[in-house]
Design a protein around this nucleic acid. Structure first.
Lengths: 213, 213
DNA sequence: AGTTGTGAAGCCATTCACAGCG
DNA sequence: CGCTGTGAATGGCTTCACAACT
């Protein structure tokens, strides 16, 4: 398959979100124009994005909402359940563990890990905080392919290396550090300080740059 | 000034982060090559990014660490203090309020707001949760230009409209919804579900796409 | 010799425009 | 007639390559 741009995948994710709404409301079809308005993009962009994966629409009519929803779930790999471990039982980890959107989309949190002795063994939401020393063993036993990293920057690369050695396949990193992984591991980083600094830059330079969702 | 790409601003932010480290360690100069390796980019990219704002380096030597750090802070608008209000006293709001990186870079949280009567008036970290009804008044009185939005999607556009009416100038949105603002307001959205879905896509299609930090 | 600064080239995502089809 | 699907054109970010400078 042709290489798909990251920006395209993010838009697919958004199309799915709004198609699910439309589906719930019982709407049968949606045009690229309607989807574009909902998602803040252009009709041509919607059609191009979808065309990478097939011809889902009917000319003169638009896209069948329910059907396209299923296609997008399949394209994004959301038909299955993904097991996720959260590393770092701090505030960010807690926010993520409670985040409705995760479970809704088939991401199941199978464990929470920390290396702080005062936290290990304590209840944490519906789970119990495990010792980070057991992380590698558990990833292998549970076959959890995804880790969410919510720990201080200093430890980040260290923990990543251990995750990789344990066979992790994807990492969502919230530590504000540049981390590296071997080519077979997928990595996405979210850096909140960086986002705020982007706003600071825009304000300072009197720009009103609207970032993508 | 020439229009600066969003990706460039994010890299500047990263350069600053690592330059501060080098400065603390007492390193005098850094080449574009060294910075590139630290930040996961290329030397040409580093030089091009910096060249938009001036000629900070010395040929044959590299960039003066301490001086460049100051330049970047100024470029990003981080020499001043930014007042920030947090809207939504849930887990995500709590994580953000506690986030060290914010205060470190000059972002001062001046208020936390919610519309849940069981939360209003209760202590929350070092602050007290205010009634969202007072938000507009306080934004004007405090002259807080930035709002962090950590509320459910359904209410997001409503609250945004009220923030805009109250004179907010920038919004960092964590609600997984497409929101719109007038052109004079800057908006950045962080959507964690979307990021995880990007990993799901990469895993499903056996790609190992490393996203930028 | 080493490294910056930068025009030019290359590449990739977005937009355009229209043929194709319902 | 309306809307999709798509090759072509556009625009913009990144990379290249080298002159300029220390």
């Amino acid at each position: 398959m042709k290489r798909i741009a990251d920006s395209t995948v993010r838009r697919l994710s958004m199309y799915l979100r709004y198609l699910e709404d439309l589906d719930t409301q019982g709407q049968q079809t949606a045009s690229s124009d309607e989807l574009a308005h909902l998602c803040g993009t252009t009709p041509a962009q919607v059609r191009k994005d979808l065309s990478f994966f097939g011809s889902f629409g009917k000319r003169g009519l638009g896209y069948p909402v329910h059907e396209l929803t299923a296609h997008l779930r399949e394209i994004l790999g959301l038909e299955r359940e993904w097991k996720v471990v959260i590393v770092g039982a701090g505030k960010i980890g807690a926010a993520l563990a409670n985040y409705r959107g995760f479970r809704q989309r088939g991401f199941k949190i199978v464990g929470v890990y920390d290396n702080d002795p005062t936290k290990i063994g304590k209840p944490w939401g519906e789970a119990i905080v495990h010792d980070m020393a057991d992380l590698a063993r558990d990833i292998q036993r549970e076959e959890a392919p995804i880790a969410v990293l919510a720990i201080p920057s200093d430890d980040a690369q260290d923990v990543v290396d251990r995750l990789v050695a344990a066979g992790i396949r994807a990492i969502l990193n919230f530590a504000p550090a540049q981390i590296t992984v071997p080519p077979h591991v997928s990595l996405k980083s979210v850096n909140m300080a960086m986002e705020l600094e982007g706003l600071s830059f825009a304000l300072t330079n009197s720009l009103a740059s609207q970032g993508a969702a």
